[in-house]
Amino acid sequence: MPTLTRVTKLYSVVDAKIAALTADPSTGSPTYATVIDVPGIQTMEISGDVETKQLRGDNTKLDSNSTVSNIQVKVDHARLSLDVLVAILGGTVTDSGTTPAQKTVWDLTAATATLPPFKLEGVTPAGGTDLIGGDLHWTLHKLNLSAFPDLGFAQEDYRIVSFTADASPLISNGKWISATLNETAAAIV
């Protein structure tokens, strides 16, 4: 059986979706709510922290050990989605009215600012890897916001929406992050 390459370039990001983590049992598999599009995805930057401990004795370094202590993602997207805000920050969205006076309101209150855990998956376009027609998916399985999202307005310019979140390993299988290289491009499901 041929082996797919494990080395590739990464070019661009064409789609990203989030889904609320609804269950993470110690036995079994995690479950997620319906995926929500992160509209106008521009960047998905993944970084991490490594904590290193050194053992010293006899006036010298005897050994050292390192551990991944955090994985973080920063996402910039061009369009505001109230459903994304609910999934990453909490709050409620209420639709009301009839045409021509319809309204959609996102409200965040002390009681609804829950900062729920969520999954994030982003993907390159087909051909965004060395595999012609293939793609790469980054999946962060369990995230929580680490800072309030960047929202608001910009004078005489578009306002880019962004958020930063920290990963935690899933209880059910220990996964923090996955990179999936597909020979044939696949949609996020």
Rank of each mutant, 00 (worst) to 15 (best):
K119R: 14
G97S: 13
Q72P: 06
D58S: 15
R79W: 11
D37S: 10
G48C: 08
Q42A: 05
N70Q: 15
T114N: 10
I88F: 01
A113C: 10
V86H: 10
D76Y: 03
D95L: 15
K53M: 14
A78V: 02
A101T: 15
G40E: 01
P116E: 07
T52Y: 09
A126F: 01
T124W: 03
R56C: 08
T109G: 05
T43G: 05
P39M: 08
A113L: 13
Q102N: 13
A110Y: 03
K119F: 04
T124I: 03
V75Y: 04
T124Q: 05
A110R: 06
T60E: 11
P100M: 04
G122P: 05
T43K: 04
H77S: 01
V86G: 07
I88D: 05
A101E: 14
P116R: 00
V105W: 10
D83P: 10
Q54F: 11
G128M: 06
T104S: 15
G48D: 01
T43R: 01
K53A: 14
L120Y: 03
S66M: 09
Q102K: 12
G122S: 07
L55G: 11
Q72N: 12
W106E: 06
D76G: 04
A113N: 08
V93N: 06
T94I: 12
G48E: 06
V123M: 06
K103S: 14
L82A: 10
L82P: 07
I46K: 00
A113T: 10
V38D: 02
L115M: 15
I88P: 00
G122R: 02
M44A: 13
P100R: 08
V38E: 06
R79Q: 15
L108H: 03
T94Y: 01
I46R: 02
R56V: 15
V86W: 00
L85P: 03
T67R: 14
P116Y: 02
G91C: 08
K74V: 07
T99L: 14
G127L: 03
